[in-house]
Simulated scan of single mutants.
Amino acid sequence: MRIAICDDEKSFSSVLKSKIYDYSNLHNWESVVDTYDCGYDLINTKIKYDIIILDYQMEQIDGLETAKLLRSGINKFSCIIFLTSFPEIAISAYDVDTYRFVVKSSLFDGLYKALDDFRKIIKVNYDISIKSSNEFITINTGKITFLEVQNKNSFLHLDNGQMYETKKPLTDLYKELPHTHFFRIHKSFIVNFMHISERGQNYVKVRNYDYELPISRNYLSKFKQKYYNYLKDL
């Protein structure tokens, strides 16, 4: 999740950035947060953002004008969340397809609510493509129960019992999966939280498969935290 903060108060941006990372860790988001203290710098960036948190009142160029120019560039589809001390100016902000308007007097309650709602609408289940047996196969990530590596080849196990073998490294596959739901529990295994049917002290089982997937001691503590956060969000 790529997030931009644009506010001409650097100290405020720094605090907000820290809070967003705290939120991301709590909800299993893999986030990168960048800060800008001028709308022109954000407009001229080559980085495509999922979410842009934009102060409405800024000196050189205000938030509304910044948003209008953003909508004609690579960030035309970004989710824009406006911050302001003056709620009465919210109406004009919706001309630039604003996702949410947050009043600074209740900043974190409003921002966390906006991020909560955004997480509900983004897709967790999406398609990835792998090459298996000289064919390109499209697989929905929600159907994957777990992945494993054997003799340098990766195997994707689906909820219907199907299995696909690919030469794509497990580490590369992991980068393509939603980390809100997938976690590497061992150097040889990645599991989808959605499909866990049983959790032991150092193993998990997934639906439709009888054998235990080991949780490495190196991953155990973080797995417990991530899985707990996933269950809280259900």
Rank of each mutant, 00 (worst) to 15 (best):
L213I: 14
Y211V: 11
Y227W: 08
L177I: 02
K175V: 13
H195T: 00
K222C: 10
D172E: 14
F193H: 03
R217A: 08
F183D: 02
Y227A: 04
K222R: 13
K187R: 15
E212Y: 11
K168N: 12
D210Y: 10
K187Q: 14
Y174W: 13
K222Y: 10
T171L: 11
P169F: 03
K168G: 08
K187G: 07
H186N: 07
Q225T: 13
G200R: 04
I185V: 15
L170I: 14
S197Y: 01
L177F: 05
R199M: 15
T166E: 09
N192Q: 04
H179G: 09
E176H: 09
S197W: 01
K175Q: 15
H179L: 13
I196G: 00
K175A: 15
I185T: 13
Y230H: 05
N208P: 09
K205W: 05
Y211L: 12
V206Y: 00
M194V: 11
N208D: 15
Y209G: 05
L177R: 01
E198C: 10
Y230T: 06
K222V: 13
Y211Q: 14
Y174I: 14
F189T: 07
S197L: 06
F182V: 02
K224M: 12
Y227N: 07
E198N: 11
K205D: 07
R207S: 13
N229W: 04
E176I: 08
F189H: 11
Y203T: 08
K167W: 12
D210M: 10
N192D: 01
T166Y: 09
V206W: 00
F183S: 02
V204T: 11
K187P: 08
Y230V: 06
I185G: 05
V191P: 00
Y211A: 12
F223V: 07
K224I: 14
Y230W: 11
I190M: 02
E198K: 09
P169Y: 03
T180W: 02
L170D: 05
E212W: 10
S188R: 05
G200E: 03
I196V: 08
K205H: 06
K224S: 12
V204R: 02
H181I: 11
R199Q: 15
F183H: 05
Q201I: 13
F193T: 01
V206F: 00
N202V: 01
F183K: 04
L170R: 08
F193P: 00
G200Q: 04
Q201V: 14
I185M: 07
F182W: 03
Y219V: 08
S188N: 09
E165F: 10
L231I: 14
R217M: 06
